[in-house]
């Protein structure tokens, strides 16, 4: 448990004149379910894009399981991008075949079990799905993978309550045991906070507060109330 899944040291990422991350330093231990929390524009998505090698930092260093991020480390990461959609012409079944082909560690049997649990039929087409159903499909594509790191960028955004509940149930079911690290960014802290056993609060590209969720609870109270005090 002492090993780190992700280490960021003095990372600065700039978009034009705006700093998305500013001398950002963070260490995420392995095997935790980490809530990456903060308002819009606080740098959550940028952090994830840097971890997955989608963009590069101007300064500082990032290590994913001890390696520099890039397409090679993406073999070890299941990543749900923010505002992602799925290929409209794919059915659930075809999406699973796609994942078997392209996503390392994807397990078809697990995916089908999750699909059943989350009420998705194999012959539904992504193009005809509700946002919630599509979100469930994409979540399955991420969590049905046997990889050490799972990153979910706003998995609950714009989704109906039932889908949210099913996604949470699917996550809980799949997080049990192992040294898998799960990073989840979300606005809906209230519903998701009991999922986390580690929480990091970001603001304007910096870490405001971070640590073991149970310790944070005993020190400051509920995580959503910490959020309210921090960003007042």
């Amino acid at each position: 448990m002492s090993k780190s899944a992700i280490v960021c040291q003095n990372v600065t990422k700039q978009y034009g004149v705006k700093r998305a991350l500013s001398e950002f330093t963070l260490e995420i231990p392995q095997g935790r379910v980490v809530g990456i929390l903060g308002p819009n524009g606080s740098g959550k998505s940028t952090l994830f894009r840097l971890i997955t090698g989608l963009t590069r930092a101007e300064q500082g260093s990032i290590h994913v399981l001890g390696k520099l991020p890039g397409w090679r480390t993406n073999c070890d990461i299941a990543y749900l991008p923010d505002r992602a959609r799925w290929y409209a012409n794919h059915t659930v079944e075809r999406a699973f075949r796609w994942a078997e082909q392209f996503l390392p560690g994807f397990d078809r049997a697990t995916a089908e079990r999750l699909a059943e649990q989350m009420h998705l039929e194999l012959d539904m087409r992504a193009g005809g799905m509700s946002r919630g159903q599509e979100a469930r499909l994409m979540l399955i594509l991420c969590i049905a993978r046997d990889v050490p790191i799972i990153i979910l960028d706003e998995p609950f955004a714009g989704i109906d309550a039932i889908s949210r509940e099913r996604i949470i149930a699917g996550l809980i079911d799949h997080m049990s045991g192992g040294d898998r690290t799960v990073l989840i960014s979300t606005h809906e802290i209230h519903e998701a906070e009991a999922l986390f056993d580690y929480a990091v609060f970001l603001d304007e590209g910096r870490v405001l507060l971070g640590g073991d969720a149970e310790q944070l609870r005993s020190q400051y109270g509920a995580i959503h109330s910490i959020q309210q005090t921090l960003y007042r």
Partner: peptide, 8 residues
Amino acid sequence: VGWWLSLP
């Protein structure tokens, strides 16, 4: 695009 770019 996120899926595409994060392919290994």
